[in-house]
Write a protein that binds this DNA or RNA. Structure first.
Lengths: 204, 204
DNA sequence: TTTTTATTGTGACATTATTAACAAAATATA
DNA sequence: TATATTTTGTTAATAATGTCACAATAAAAA
């Protein structure tokens, strides 16, 4: 299964559809959606086709609400998704305050840090010592975790999470985490993202 | 030119090579690098080949220092790259404190915010009103910007940056920015990154 | 020295992704 | 009602990317 870009595009379409809806529109054509998402209309239709979204009507386009329902089904947006956050440094704190997750029904239910001074209830979410991961993961049935610790501790945290049956990890430490192949890891290296932007900008 | 994944992989190789070097190694084989970067050795060699990195020696592998030099040439790491940051909210503050940029010779030379209470010298970097963008961009010859404002203001900021001759933008607002095609934009939507992780985790 | 072994770099092949083309169908117009 | 127009969904064509296979060759072993 090699659908990485597909999935990313679907998520962008979702964003665009929500925007259109907020603007009061009720239907879109693949052309409109393509414009907004910066892809060709054919690409939009192809992506829909691949995910068996076939509720468009020739000459009448797609009902935005129907598309959003289909996308919500694909992305299982019927209930909240609990995730935990390890590391309450710069990035961790920013993520714990980030407003965008709530709209996606993503809930950071707890955070963890080794620094006792950060283990407090004064943040929006409770911050525990990392030893408590096991307990919280079981209590809230958590399958997804965010790693936002310095790179020296990242692999250790990763191993601990996997030992506690975490299935997917988004990693903000600038290191390539090692994991068994049944654990999915999404590495976001901010400096590399900047580098790649700089590369494309200077070499365009 | 469609080298997006190539470039990302080169950056990961770079990371891995630095790690190997710190561990005291002097040479690597494509096999080692592939293991560390989670790609096949053939992929490593193909990527090198594409960027005309051909300093490997059969049976003797690659000298790490030589590879790092080649990568530094590709990514123009001979001097600092000045960038500006617009928006000193959660994400903006985290980015302004992020240690990882310095090692990559990426320097956030100034930040901007519309909120006067944030226009202070008490952060690590000076924070100016957005009206000053023009002046700072000229003074530091800035070509790259980071947008970390709420989505309602993001397009306006983007337009202003482009009017000031910014060539590349990394955007943390959850919105697809519109730009002329000579301006390269790297959208990082944290909620979408989480969603895509969740999708792959639950559908693996 | 000769033989064996290991590893690179690349050309051939396979897979995946994107673009183009177009029939089918719904709407609009005459 | 008949005709023209528009837009979808899919099949076909093209392009891009990744994997495999292997000759070339450097190093190690015999």
């Amino acid at each position: 299964m090699y659908l990485k870009n597909n999935i990313r595009r679907l998520l962008v379409y979702r964003q665009c559809l929500i925007k259109f809806k907020e603007l009061g529109f009720e239907i879109v054509y693949s052309y409109n959606l393509g414009c907004e998402a910066n892809v060709s209309p054919e690409q939009v239709r192809k992506d829909f086709s691949k995910f068996e979204i076939k509720e468009g009507r020739r000459k009448a386009g797609y009902k935005i609400d129907h598309l959003l329902e289909s996308l919500d089904t694909i992305f299982k947006k019927d209930k909240d998704q609990n995730v935990i956050l390890v590391g309450m440094g710069n990035i961790g704190k920013a993520l714990s305050n980030y407003k965008g997750f709530a709209q996606h029904k993503i809930v950071i239910c707890a955070a963890f840090d080794i620094d006792p001074s950060k283990q407090t209830k004064s943040y929006k979410i409770p911050v525990y010592p990392v030893e408590n991961i096991s307990m919280i993961v079981k209590r809230h049935n958590v399958k997804i975790a965010i790693i936002a610790v310095p790179k020296s501790g990242a692999q250790e945290v990763c191993d601990r999470l996997i030992a506690n049956d975490i299935q997917g990890i988004i990693n903000f430490s600038p290191i390539n985490l090692k994991s068994p192949k049944n654990v999915y890891i999404n590495n976001i290296d901010l400096a590399n993202e900047m580098e790649s932007l700089i590369y494309f900008t200077l070499n365009k």
